[in-house]
């Protein structure tokens, strides 16, 4: 062994390498997180110098709040629909675009990937204009009553308007991930299955799907998280209206903290949001991990 030229051991150097990242993360991520948990047990309004420690009163208050319960209902149905449609549609697209029989695959792929590079606020604003100016015209032309006015102004339809826009943009990344997953399936398995007389459906269920489980897992986590924390589309399109019919939990926390001066309450609701995301992700993992193949 040659002696080291600088008088610093490998151990120390490695430790120093981690230091900048760990410090930045501790101060700007873990710090706010733990102060958030602390504030969630106070009645601080975010401005005054004095506040009291009130333990779990914010949490209890939150669950008896009609507005919060309405927002939960909106957020959960939005998350469920978003996750379902994005997963199904992007998987179908990926299967279609991975097939060698389709021509212009790469052109289609680029087209469907395009929305992913746009900012969600701009996408929301553009669609807002389309819902306002274009959709009523089409609705009148086709004689569909429900679409003859701006759907975002209708409490029953606004959810679907926002959902449509988030699917429009949200399919792109899962599609690319699924295509990559499909290409990781060893081709000889299909050949063997064909020789054994398997149908297309059997091949998908017993060969393709197990190999897609890791990707599916990632897609589900991404979408559940995106759904539960959704903020930007709603901010750009309805601002939570009409009434509170499209107010998500993410938007409510923002309003509590910066508009209503209920800093403590907003913090408590954000802690609940964290618990919900963690819970859904872990449930999803433990369920899907049993279904997949252990890839070597």
């Amino acid at each position: 062994m040659q002696p080291l030229r600088i008088g610093m051991s490998k151990k120390t150097t490695h430790f120093l390498f981690t230091l900048p990242g760990v410090l930045v993360f501790a101060v700007l991520f873990l710090g706010p997180m733990f102060t958030g948990i602390y504030y969630s047990m106070t009645n601080w309004d975010g401005l005054s110098k004095k506040y009291n420690f009130i333990w779990f009163e914010n949490y209890i208050q939150t669950f008896s709040d009609v507005r919060f319960m309405g927002d939960i209902r909106f957020t959960l149905s939005y998350t469920f629909l978003l996750t379902f449609f994005v997963t199904v549609l992007s998987l179908l697209l990926a299967v279609a675009l991975n097939s060698r029989l389709i021509r212009f695959r790469n052109a289609y792929r680029s087209a469907f990937f395009f929305p992913a590079v746009l900012g969600s606020i701009v996408v929301g604003l553009i669609w807002n204009q389309i819902f306002y100016g274009v959709i009523p015209n089409i609705g009148k032309f086709l004689g569909i009553n429900a679409l003859s006015t701006n759907p975002l102004g209708n409490p029953n339809l606004a959810l679907y308007g926002i959902l449509f826009v988030s699917i429009w943009q949200g399919i792109a990344i899962p599609m690319v991930l699924f295509i990559a997953g499909l290409q990781s399936v060893p081709q000889h398995l299909y050949e063997a299955a064909t020789l054994d007389g398997a149908t297309i459906f059997q091949k998908f269920r017993d060969i393709t799907f197990p190999f897609l489980v890791p990707v599916l897992s990632v897609v589900l986590v991404l979408k559940i998280r995106a759904g539960l924390t959704t903020f930007e589309y709603i901010m750009a399109m309805t601002g939570g209206g009409p009434g509170f019919s499209t107010e998500s939990i993410g938007l409510l926390i923002f309003k509590q903290g910066f508009g209503n001066n209920r800093f403590g309450l907003g913090a408590a609701q954000s802690v609940l949001l964290l618990v919900a995301i963690a819970l859904f992700s872990i449930l999803q993992f433990s369920y899907l991990n049993r279904k997949g193949v252990d890839q070597q």
């Binding site: 958030g36 903020f231 926390i253 992700s281």
Partner: peptide, 21 residues
């Protein structure tokens, strides 16, 4: 695992204390 844990934390949770800080 500290970094991985960050995946579960919504921005909304950090935003209020972050602004004060």
């Amino acid at each position: 695992y500290m970094f991985i844990f960050g995946m579960f934390v919504p921005v909304q949770m950090l935003m209020l204390p972050l602004v004060k800080m």
